[in-house]
Design a protein around this nucleic acid. Structure first.
Lengths: 293, 293
DNA sequence: AACAAAACTTCAGGAAAACTGAAACGTGGC
DNA sequence: GCCACGTTTCAGTTTTCCTGAAGTTTTGTT
């Protein structure tokens, strides 16, 4: 039998949960159904996907297939969502994909403006990393995108949104915030430095070398903030992100770190609701748009 | 009912062929089956996907959905291929993705070397544009990639392969090849200039401005060559690509076009057949590898 | 070592789905 | 009005998918 998406999905859930029963529960079917599906998949591939007697350890092949299958399932679900969104919108639909830091910043205003201007308009917002933002645009899954860096893409125009300098983020009572002298890279990148995804955009060689030794990486911004608020840890973030942090944290420029991050707005040229999309882009780019500065 | 990949596939084929009968034929099922599937899909979305009585014109929504669905179906098929390839290979499997121009250059040698070194090894080669090469690597669909430009990717190492200057490509008897003085941008970018995808990698401003006015773009290299051989047309390509062209064409540097293209070899770090992949990469990078220079 | 619990597989039957050929339908051309 | 063409609907069949119950194997406990 041909490979089907539902087979891959079943396999992925079993691989994730490590148990048939648990997976069957999540998938909303009986154990036996899942068992049979899995057997079908293995029969199709001609090799076992699991190692050992139980389903809690993947074979070498299983690992590989899992990586591919998980991605495919996620991809498929996204497409389905997108198709359904496109179909259910007759008053108009704008799909925005953005890097998380900026998404939180702009969304409230965008929502307020657009719903007032176009009653009945649907807006969909998703956030991921810059790379996936661009992918979503190229694949026609989004009408507007916000990402770091300028990239030339077919059928998509790029507009500079703002620049953002990188700096120290720490608790307000942290010594590095209290000292008069602005901090340097060496001050900041110590044992208590937290590495995060945005750090990788910094090109200053001195800094790149320094963070080589950083042991802890935190991808999720919320967790990062929680750590920083304890007062023990510090990190480096773009100013706009830092300003969005709650009370007890501070942002300071780093004297020998000149890096900026350039954020661009990407506009899909042949969006279905061209006018609405253009209007939305125009609003974000207009002086009327207030950045929480 | 839930959206299924086969529904999307049916829709895509009908949209492409513009006829139920033809599509049913291609899909290997009866007309009525396809008709019902389509009706299901439309029912699910709540709106018609086609305009007019016949299936030969898509509605506005249909266009949108087609774009998304076509991409998804292609994506899915690729994943299935990849999964099956991974499963069927027990002697080892290396999946190489490359930009077309380089693929043709390296593949014969790579194949010869690897099959000798690892009998029973399977090799899979696919070619697409640079962007998709990188995507395939990130998505775990490829072990080795060859693409233009250096990009930092997680879990993937980049090695410079070669640099390539851009220059004029024309028929040997073309005036621009016969004249003693090396051609300039202005000589080359005239009415008979053909724009191609690789041109977009050139950064020299003068050239970028000049090709703005180019009316004809040819993406497929074979077609491009066919045009150039007529003697009426010229284009600009990297030297390595140009040298691969058949007899009656010539390559000449352009005096005021200093651009180079940097080609990198990307190696996925945790490929399943790590040793074979590393060996293959090592071979391509070694001095033993003879570039058809 | 014996027993019980847990984890999974197998099986038979039944529900849902997908498919087919035949007939019906609708539109445009003559 | 009637035919040709492309599509839809229908009824019946085949295929696929799922479930509950019973069976098997492994794991843990006393």
């Amino acid at each position: 039998m041909a490979l089907k998406i539902e087979m891959l999905r079943s396999f992925c859930v079993v691989a994730q949960t490590g148990s048939l029963a648990e997976a069957a529960d999540r998938l909303g079917r009986s154990q036996s159904a899942v068992s049979m599906t899995l057997k079908q998949l293995e029969a199709h591939l001609g090799k076992p996907l699991f190692a050992g007697e139980r389903k809690n350890r993947l074979s070498q092949l299983g690992e590989q297939v899992f990586e591919l299958a998980a991605r495919q399932v996620r991809q498929f679900d996204e497409t389905v969502q997108s198709i359904e969104a496109v179909a259910s919108a007759d008053q108009g639909l704008i799909r925005i994909v953005s890097v998380p830091s900026v998404a939180a910043l702009i969304f409230p205003q965008v929502l307020a403006h657009m719903t007032r201007r176009f009653p009945g308009l649907k807006i969909e917002l998703r956030d991921t990393d810059s790379q996936q933002v661009l992918d979503a645009l190229v694949e026609g899954k989004a009408d507007l995108g916000i990402a770091s860096g300028r990239h030339a893409l077919n059928g998509i125009t790029a507009q500079p949104l703002f620049r953002d300098r990188f700096g120290l983020v720490c608790a307000t009572q942290h010594p590095l915030n209290r000292q008069a002298r602005p901090p340097t890279i060496d001050d900041v990148v110590t044992e208590s430095f937290l590495h995060n995804a945005l750090c990788d955009m910094i090109e200053t060689l001195r800094f790149r070398q320094a963070i080589e030794s950083a042991d802890i990486t935190i991808h999720n911004t919320h967790s990062l903030i929680a750590m920083i608020r304890t007062g023990h840890w510090v990190s480096v973030l773009p100013e706009t992100v830092a300003q969005f942090l709650p009370g007890a944290t501070a942002f300071r420029p780093i004297s020998d770190l000149p890096d900026r991050r350039d954020v661009y707005l990407y506009i899909r040229e042949n969006a279905r609701f061209r006018d609405e999309t253009q209007d939305c882009a125009g609003f974000i780019l207009s002086p009327a748009f207030k950045w929480p500065a």
